[in-house]
């Protein structure tokens, strides 16, 4: 921490290196100094601590995917984890590194936002807990201060009345999705008591489709309602276009993928 703090304006943390090193090789990132944390074995934990899943700075993607967390969160992590890169990437890249990198289409960033997780940031002054909503500032930019690093991510363990569904569209297996949707609904007496819909790839950071979420509460889900929710979610985003998909195409994907993720969560088949 001292080395990082003393060189805050020129040093980067090197964890899995599956985003930072390609960026260095492409000369998109040119840090003068790397602080390699790979030797810190005590940072590679993934553990449930009462109702919270705690993921250490050095926990690899595959550890999170295979963590067998009890309840719906375990299944969700497995399903989302399988979408992260390829096996060699998942063996090496880290969950917290992905959050700190803050790619707007990153699976774990969208998951943190949807599951209302937190990030524990450490600086020389001590630790602070940052909620997902306050962590992602814009593309590749977080609210970490100079000299701070992510030491842990926290996800609330989901009770059994939660259900999840995901929908992704990527150009090739293992690519970042053009658009991804993670839906979480809490179902009480066959009605939606709480809904969260997280979107990746449609903004400069992961976002929630709040207007669509509000439409679902108190309802039983059916095709018609899901289509309404998809349209509401699509109306609520202002995607940017790039080589992988125009703004219009991304908005269309939100309209199609939100119902698909919700349908998977509800079990419409």
């Amino acid at each position: 921490m001292r080395i990082l703090a003393e060189n805050a304006d020129r040093a980067k943390i090197l964890a899995g290196g599956q985003s930072l090193v390609p960026m260095q090789n492409l000369r998109l990132a040119r840090p003068e100094m790397l602080v390699d944390i790979n030797g810190i074995d005590s940072a590679s934990f993934v553990m449930v601590d009462s109702d919270v899943l705690r993921i250490g700075a050095l926990a690899r993607h595959i550890q999170v995917e295979e963590a067998r967390v009890p309840g719906p969160l375990g299944g969700l992590l497995e399903e989302v984890g399988r979408q992260v890169g390829h096996l060699p990437i998942r063996l090496r890249g880290t969950f917290c590194g992905s959050l700190a990198h803050a790619d707007p289409a990153a699976e774990w960033c969208a998951l943190l936002a949807t599951a209302k997780g937190n990030v524990v940031a450490r600086g020389l002054g001590g630790d602070r807990v940052i909620a997902a909503d306050d962590f992602f500032d814009t593309a590749f930019t977080t609210s970490l201060a100079l000299g701070e690093m992510v030491v842990e991510a926290r996800l609330p363990v989901l009770s059994e009345d939660w259900r999840f569904g995901t929908a992704f569209l990527s150009r090739r297996a293992g690519d970042f999705a053009v658009v991804l949707v993670i839906a979480l609904i809490r179902v009480v007496e066959e009605k939606v008591a709480e809904a969260r819909i997280g979107l990746g790839g449609v903004s400069d950071r992961p976002v929630r489709a709040r207007s669509a979420e509000a439409m679902l509460v108190g309802e039983r889900l059916n095709r018609e309602l899901l289509e309404h929710a998809g349209r509401a979610a699509a109306d609520g985003v202002e995607p940017l276009g790039d080589l992988h998909g125009t703004a219009e195409f991304r908005r269309h994907l939100v309209k199609v993928l939100v119902p698909r993720a919700l349908s998977n969560a509800w079990g419409l088949g």
């Binding site: 599956q18 090193v21 090789n25 390699d36 790979n38 390829h86 096996l87 990437i89 090496r92």
Partner: peptide, 26 residues
């Protein structure tokens, strides 16, 4: 040399790793 193609895959402690994305000193 940017972690996409996998031609440089080697085993590091038995795990397949893209050797263009890991420094020798690591």
């Amino acid at each position: 040399e940017q972690g996409i193609c996998g031609s440089c895959t080697v085993l590091v402690d038995g795990d397949p790793v893209r050797s263009c994305l890991i420094y020798a000193v690591q």
